[in-house]
């Protein structure tokens, strides 16, 4: 290309655009915290003791709230993918993306702006959920290093799921379509995982699914980092592997949809 491109500046401009959008619609942007907080109240506070007893926890085992919280952090990330998916779909249906495409700007900036914007929002959501969990009795025993590793993993998961959600948003023609198409990420994966129960306590069909889906090794790893539960060998690597794989697929799929039909 004969013109210089400005990847950092253009991506920063797009990030500012998305953060401004988020400020205009705080309910949609931080709506992701709603579900995990309800779950914290319902399962952590109300049913918590019963669950602990039933799972052989209680006095000498883990507190159910401690067991539950890491999975709910993932749920917050997953629910948060709805907003960038809708944002990407809306961009495509309105003329603004046509404008961006006829400008000499760094091509991936528009979508990367959505992803970074969502990383910022999700970080806030996660802080709110952790804060609330601590308030009602979540007591992690993690060291500073564990916290940093956990934070790193959570951000990696956010980036991966957001790219994938954006790819899904781009192939749906409307905002409504986008909010439906990401439901498997925002709803099915968090529930059909080991968020609420250890794998051993699940019926066989669900257990099979939960065992092989990406959230389970990620939640195992988070639990290990935050509350020190034992973890299967290789869960950490599996967790990172999933993040990398989902990011790569989501990124290239999204960029391909975005650039479809235009001059390179």
């Amino acid at each position: 290309m004969s013109t210089a491109s400005y990847p950092v500046a253009d991506t920063a401009t797009m990030l500012r655009r998305n953060l401004r959008h988020a400020l205009r619609y705080p309910a949609l942007s931080l709506g992701a915290v709603g579900m995990p907080i309800i779950m914290l109240l319902l399962f952590g506070l109300i049913f918590g003791d019963t669950f602990s007893a039933g799972l052989g926890g209680g006095a000498d085992g883990f507190a159910y709230l401690d067991f539950l919280t890491p999975g709910l952090l993932l749920m917050a990330i997953a629910s948060g993918t709805m907003s960038p998916a809708i944002g990407a779909a809306m961009d495509m249906t309105e003329g603004i993306v046509a404008r961006f495409r006829t400008m000499a700007i760094f091509r991936p900036a528009v979508l990367t702006g959505h992803v970074l914007g969502n990383v910022v929002l999700t970080t806030i959501s996660l802080a709110v959920v952790v804060g609330f969990a601590v308030l009602i009795g979540f007591r992690p025993n993690a060291s500073v290093v564990d916290w940093l590793l956990a934070a790193g993993l959570l951000i990696a998961v956010t980036i991966a799921l957001t790219w994938f959600a954006i790819a899904l948003g781009l192939i749906s023609k409307t905002a409504e379509g986008a909010s439906n198409i990401v439901l498997p990420i925002s709803f099915v994966l968090p529930f059909l995982s080991n968020t609420f129960l250890p794998l051993d306590a699940m019926p066989s069909g669900v257990r099979w699914f939960a065992e092989y889906q990406p959230f389970t090794p990620i939640i195992d790893t988070l639990r290990h980092l935050l509350i020190g539960t034992p973890v299967k060998d290789g869960s950490g690597l599996q967790a990172i592997g999933w993040c990398v794989a989902i990011t790569v697929v989501g990124y290239f799929w999204a960029q391909k949809s975005y650039n479809k039909g235009t001059a390179a």
């Binding site: 309105e94 003329g95 603004i96 046509a98 404008r99």
Partner: peptide
């Protein structure tokens, strides 16, 4: 170039 399409290409949320 600059392009103004048939449908307004403004960002409604800005």
């Amino acid at each position: 170039i600059g392009v103004t399409g048939q449908f307004s290409a403004v960002d409604g949320l800005l």
